[in-house]
Simulated scan of single mutants.
Amino acid sequence: MYTPPHYKEERPEALQAFIHQHSFGLLISPGPQGMEATHLPFLLEVDGAGPGRLLAHLSRANPQWKHLEEAGEVLTVFSGPHAYISASWYTERTDVPTWNYVAVHAYGRARRVDGERLHGMLARMAQRYEATSAVPWSLGEVPEASLQAMTKGIVGIEIELTRLQGTRKLSQNRSAEDQQRVLQALRERGSPDDLALAALMERPS
């Protein structure tokens, strides 16, 4: 991912926190017919100082899983808020418009997860995503026969991450006055992404 130095995010804890917050990603890998891509919820697990590992599962009917282990490096893209930035917001209208956004690219090697490891992965994913529910559901509520039937229709994957790349394009290259004008304009326009970007611009990097 091309990232100019003033937009680059390299802090591992910030990149991992972003994935935790924006965990619905796009898995991209090469296949026999060309590039393949699937939108998936992921669970990031971190042990020690490394970038961690991503856990997910695909439908068995999705052919992408068949080529993941032999694909070498695969890419997962996590996207955050993004918005059009009008040149009319700047002090000099002769400048050009742009797009502000936040994103993380996660690279690694994938392998299949089967059997008890798959059940454990599904239980941890459910626990993670049910954490905000008033009455959390757990995998243990599913009868064993139904669980066995369900897992036959999916393929678990684990991606051992080798590197993370992050971009925070939040008008850092603009003057302090232009940054305040962009911030105010985003608030006034007021879409969810506009407000999320404004909050990020105000937050210390």
Rank of each mutant, 00 (worst) to 15 (best):
F42C: 07
R168F: 00
D47V: 02
S133Y: 07
R203V: 02
L55I: 09
L58F: 00
R117S: 06
E73W: 03
A17S: 10
V74N: 05
K169A: 09
R187I: 05
D114R: 12
I19V: 13
S146A: 14
W65A: 02
K169D: 04
V182Q: 11
V74E: 03
M150L: 15
S191K: 05
Y84H: 11
F42E: 06
E70A: 15
Y84V: 09
S191T: 15
T132N: 14
A103P: 06
S23V: 01
D47R: 10
E202C: 06
L44E: 01
Q33E: 12
I159D: 00
R112V: 15
L68I: 02
T94W: 09
P192N: 01
L43A: 09
L68R: 00
E130S: 08
G120L: 02
S171W: 02
A103V: 12
T38N: 05
A196I: 03
Y84W: 08
A123Y: 06
L164A: 04
K152L: 13
S79H: 11
S29C: 07
S133C: 14
A56R: 00
G140H: 09
T76A: 10
Q16V: 05
A71Y: 09
L75H: 01
A49D: 09
E45A: 09
F42I: 10
A103I: 06
T76V: 15
H82K: 04
E158W: 04
V182H: 04
L186Q: 03
Y2W: 12
K169N: 04
E13A: 11
Q127N: 12
K152Q: 15
R53E: 15
P204Y: 06
K152Y: 11
Q21G: 08
E116G: 14
L147Q: 12
R117C: 06
V135N: 15
V46H: 07
L161V: 01
A14P: 12
H105P: 01
P63N: 14
G25S: 05
L40S: 00
E202L: 11
R187V: 10
E70G: 08
A106E: 02
Y129I: 12
E70M: 06
G48Q: 02
D95G: 08
E13D: 15
S138Q: 15
F24G: 02
L27P: 09
L200M: 13
G52E: 12
F18I: 00
L122T: 12
R112Y: 15
